[in-house]
Amino acid sequence: MTFRQISFNLGALGLLLALLGLVYWQHTGARAVPGLIDALQTGDLQTQMLAAQGLRHIGQPAQPAVPALIELAIGQGRSSIQIEAAGALPPIDLSAARKVMVNWLPKLQDPDPQVRRDAAAALGALGPVAKPAVHSLLGIATDPNTIVRDRVVRALAAIALPPELVTRGLTQALQDPEWTVRYAAISPFSFGGVLTPESLAAVRPLIHDPIEMVARLAQSALASADHPIPVSVHIFSLDQGSDRTLPLLQLAKLGPRAAEAVPKLASLLSAERPLERYLAASTLESVGPGALQAVPALQRTLADPDPIVREAAAEALHSIEARRP
């Protein structure tokens, strides 16, 4: 072969790689949003679900998709797409997620158990942003319908805030006569959950639960309580991962014991993503007076462009001041 032939074929390979790079670039990040909005409107469930997942992954740059996501999250479609669309909103727009919450909240009191079940599932999909819904969820924690109770427990575990209220609800559900509800209630404790003395007392008998899966998770929860993950590990996770939601929630569950993380949490009040700023403020709220050194940062956050973050900062300041001895 001549050098010209070799160069030509190498050049063609370079061109192919550039083309592949261009295709990838076009289908990721903010460039993918118009295509994903179209996919949300196809009417095909799988396409819609994948589009919602894609938009959630993109986060804030997916802002133009918010109206379509709200429509799906509160619409008359299937529960699975309502949940997926609701779950996509918090990383994109906290206020939009709250709108969905406000829409679903009254449905927790609906006479139809299927509507109550769907409402609980949608609220759970919103995650920690649905914190104001916890009281209403606890109000139907003893619903006569098993599936409703199961969805309520799962929603409480997903929302996770405020930790004291959520833990109280989950602890209560540990004594549910239905094993699926007990299983849903014990799961958050066994995977890095924080046990209060009350919840510890409720978990102990479950190691003899007739359902083996529940008993195993109870053993795991007790083992986690004996060897809690140090705060420093959660702080390390905050520095490492691209998604800080989980370590922030873990710190929030620790409450005043997470005081060591206050400087890191204060720095996250100016994070780029509103969801992280919201979670940092909510975690400081659960730390309470131990977060005194974060007060100047929280006061600055009162001018945050996102109203939900501002609200969380105000609640954190109130918690720090109100609980001071």
């Binding site: 190498l10 390979l13 790689l17 592949l20 295709v23 990838y24 289908h27 990721t28 993918a32 799988q46 396409t47 994948l50 997942q53 894609g54 959630r56 992954h57």
Partner: peptide, 26 residues
């Protein structure tokens, strides 16, 4: 549908798979 879907990324998997093939082709 799954080429660029988070958690599937079949496009990226194809590119990763192609690396040794491209090296050998050159």
């Amino acid at each position: 549908l799954h080429l660029f879907a988070p958690g599937y990324n079949l496009f990226i998997i194809a590119l990763i798979n192609a690396i040794p093939f491209l090296m050998f082709a050159v």
